[in-house]
Design a protein around this nucleic acid. Sequence first.
RNA 1: GGGGACGUGGUGUAGCCUGGUUUAACACACUGCCCUGUCAAGGCAGAGACCGCGGGUUCAAAUCCCGUCGUCCCCGCCA
Length: 588
Amino acid sequence: MKRSMYCGKVTESSIGQEVTVCGWVHSRRDHGGVVFIDLRDREGILQIVFQSENASVFTIAESLRSEYVICVKGNVRKRPEGTNNLNMFTGNVELIVSQIEVLNTSAALPFEISDYVETSEELRLKYRYLDLRRTNFQKNFIMRHKLSNEVRNFLNEEGFLDIETPFLTKSTPEGARDFLVPSRLYHGSFFALPQSPQIFKQILMVSGFDKYYQLARCFRDEDLRADRQLEFTQIDIEMSFVQEEDVMSLVERMLERVCKSVLNIEIKTPFEKISYQDAMLRYGSDKPDTRFDMEIKDFAHELKNCNFSVFASAINKGGIVRGLCIPKGASFSRSEIDALAKFVGEYGAKGLAWMKVTSSGAESNIVKYFKEEEVKVTISKLNANVGDLIVFLADEEKIVVQGLGALRLKLGKELGLIDKSKFNFLWVIDFPLMEWNMEEQRWQALHHPFTSPKNPDSINKENVGLQKAKAYDVILNGVELGGGSIRIHKSNVQKKIFDILNISDEAANEKFGFLLDALSYGAPPHGGVALGFDRMCALFGGEESIREVIAFPKTQKTLDPLSNAPSQVSDKQLKELGLKVVVKQAKN
RNA sequence: GGGGACGUGGUGUAGCCUGGUUUAACACACUGCCCUGUCAAGGCAGAGACCGCGGGUUCAAAUCCCGUCGUCCCCGCCA
């Protein structure tokens, strides 16, 4: 028997036709004289019916079990009056089986393939092939395919060339930890897997390809999170003879197109723009979730003479005081407020000051240190209403910003302030070029060291702290979807940046000499962007974790329970590579 | 490197706080039987866990304590 259509595609238009479908036994309902089976393939589920009149197929039907693979032929008919299933796409029809072939049996399952029962992550990954049979996964990966296809279509139409860059490349000193691949012919030398195709795509611009893209796999040997894997995919784009607006406009048009064609959502362009400084002040984050308000306000000016010693001393030490208003938060119990204080403690805050807004002003154990005017100004600046809770952090800037930013997000989620149907795109711009690394006592690129300063000609070691970058991040619902910049295209400017970053001429030549050389041979002005494709798929699929849109992800401890990678290798393999010993064995 | 949550038949959970009628409960899955319109089908019967692992406290430990392993979330890290 040869399949004639997908289970999930059988609808009214097939009524009266004989079709052959193949799939997995999703569920079986044996009524004695009639057996119903929900047959599942990647496109959906179809109810097939076995009637006792057809004795030979009926006997087989009674022996079928979950996840058996079968092929059945039969007539499609309209379901009898009153037996339609409105929850199924194929719920108005059913297939009356005339022939069946059992293509394979299945052992009893280690867990239920059901959308109703959650199974532990470890077990799901060990039996990933079963987990991926869930309709939600089938849906996610079909969506992922559509998305990548639409991205490619769009970029192809815009005149971009898809060019591959190497996986075996050179280790770079700045940035994430590299995955190293030992060289067999040159013992002691290593390739590195790319953290991103950054340098290669810039060199492609020097070569005159003008517009490049790639759905590029990238590798970073850092600890994992819900939105981070060791390897991930990014939509990598680079263009010549462009400014910030050109790249941003391209990204907007691309996102507009894929939102329409994949999700059937109309989004507004151009996206709202917010400066880095503003984002950090108002949202305590460089990737603000603007689906809800609860903005943070600064009180350095209003409360600088406040009698509350914690605030005064924080300001005296060069720190800041900021606060936010939690709607209806006055009903929080003391222990709930303590929990909030503990939460901001994770970001280094030593405490959380608070006041409940009442009809006569405010109350809490710190209100007595405030002048009436200070309370009034605070309430009005935060637009607080009676019944709200105002919380403050006073400390060094980084702690206050991060603590309140994280608190705002946590409360936004927990208090249900977030409208999940919203797709809020946003540009964060005007990033500082560099930030001071306290531990290593040196400047460090905020983006990457190839990012062009706004004023490349006047930059020097003294003013670098005030320099802004020609960089932009695109944010969706509080997730950094991607970022990019206009690059440095002149080798003297690039050398100057390396110098400020404390990378010696010698080191710069050793690590990036090939880029510096390339820039000296007529590099065009260029810039680009990279979008996290896995994150995009997760957001589009309504998933919290990118593991739900990656077929074979690793656990948080970087293991693959399916294949048991990483694993030890033979002495012979090691010897060929000029390596010895394995110190720590992965425990699977 | 650090903090937190979790770990009980095949799966998901309850029991743990307050140790003893626990012979560890419930649902799903599984096995057998019944049933001609179900769709997370239903009914009857059955098999299946000494409670992640190790140690300690106690007359007595799934339950309390210590350690350890694993999974997830977060901080650090991720230019």
